[in-house]
Design a protein around this nucleic acid. Structure first.
Lengths: 205, 205
DNA sequence: CGATTTTGATGACACTGTGTCACTTCACTA
DNA sequence: TAGTGAAGTGACACAGTGTCATCAAAATCG
């Protein structure tokens, strides 16, 4: 997390800084990004950077979190819209994600993130639970889920289902970028896999 | 890929070098590893390192590939053993992987790899297809698979099923490391999820 | 053989980038 | 208006990378 100093900054300066960071992380993946470029582009001195952030990673994960925040917030409402159907909600989330695809820099940033996924990056995308107090949020989702339709014994299994669906969805994203699939191809693959998840890999007797 | 010079090296020297690399990559994740440490430990001059490898990453992915080679080779025989059942074969692969868990350095190396997974690392684990000529290998697997039991329309769907199963299996590994689960907990989670995959997330009518 | 060419070994060096720290400036309050 | 704590600043020490000119060894050839 950025230091308090960063949050005390005037909004404009904060925005400039984040834009500079976005630009640099769009240019190259985390490992290749340089603080020098960011501060040059944001026109702040080196010392200030360390006044605001622990290091490059600190800024990076903060930015990633910000960029995915809205997308994540959306899940609850999608769940309501689809009458508690987790898979359908995730499918629409996937579509939205593809459609939204914001400005070019943000797109490149995401691509870099996807191709150099760390455990932390993956969590940023798949932990739809982890907003604010994670516990409560998970409970909220659990309550919303339509259990009639699901092949589960108890509430704990909902967690596994979420896990599976988000993991496979995420993998499909990474693939879209790494294999440079068109939206159509990506969606075709994704739908096929979601279908297999719903009805099972094994044939029904 | 390492340069030819590396493969021309006497076996002993090559081994020493790989051990030194293993040690360094066990100590810290790729981004933190230093060539200086590796060459000091392997007692070779800096220039020689660049005679053998393009850079740190080159060595890293080569080492990763070597360490997982045998584990990957195993899949075909597991598939035969389980009469072409992909899920059962993958389940046994997972168990083997947990049980084998070799010397401490190799274990730490894997842990670092898992927690800082790049798209490339994930592929190293999940591309059970990609040994030697990928095309042939995939066909070999496709031929072996027992399609009677699977919920598929054509051979292309087998690919999606492999994708799903290996992705979820891989995610379970990462989780074992990141949440420091015991073997028992890890296996319980994993079995639960494999079961959901087999029979579907949706309830059978 | 000795000469020549090719291949490999070596470490000093230029360069890039990080994080720190002593010092300055600013904003606010007593 | 002096005093205090927070924020700003950039020079610097340090760590790491990749290259290159040079040397050594081995293979090839007339």
């Amino acid at each position: 997390m950025p230091k308090q100093t960063f949050f005390n900054l005037p909004a404009q300066k904060r925005k400039t800084l984040m834009e500079a960071a976005g630009k640099e992380f769009a240019r190259v993946p985390l490992s290749g990004a340089s603080i020098a470029n960011i501060i040059k582009s944001a026109k702040i001195p080196r010392g200030s950077f360390y006044q605001y952030f622990e290091n490059k990673e600190d800024l990076y994960y903060f930015l990633l979190g910000e960029q995915t925040k809205e997308r994540k917030m959306n899940f609850i409402s999608l769940l309501k819209k689809h009458n508690g159907d987790i898979v359908e909600a995730t499918i629409e989330m996937y579509y939205d994600f593809l459609k939204q695809m914001p400005d070019e820099d943000e797109q490149k940033f995401l691509k870099n993130a996807m191709l150099h996924v760390t455990h932390k990056v993956e969590n940023a995308f798949t932990d739809v639970f982890d907003i604010g107090d994670g516990k409560e949020h998970l409970e909220e989702i659990t309550a919303l889920v339509n259990k009639e339709r699901l092949n589960i014994r108890d509430d704990k299994d909902i967690f596994h289902i979420m896990q599976i669906v988000t993991t496979v969805a995420f993998r499909n994203f990474v693939e879209k970028f790494s294999k440079e699939l068109s939206d159509e191809e990506a969606i075709e693959n994704f739908n096929k896999e979601m279908d297999l998840l719903k009805h099972g890999l094994y044939r029904r007797e």
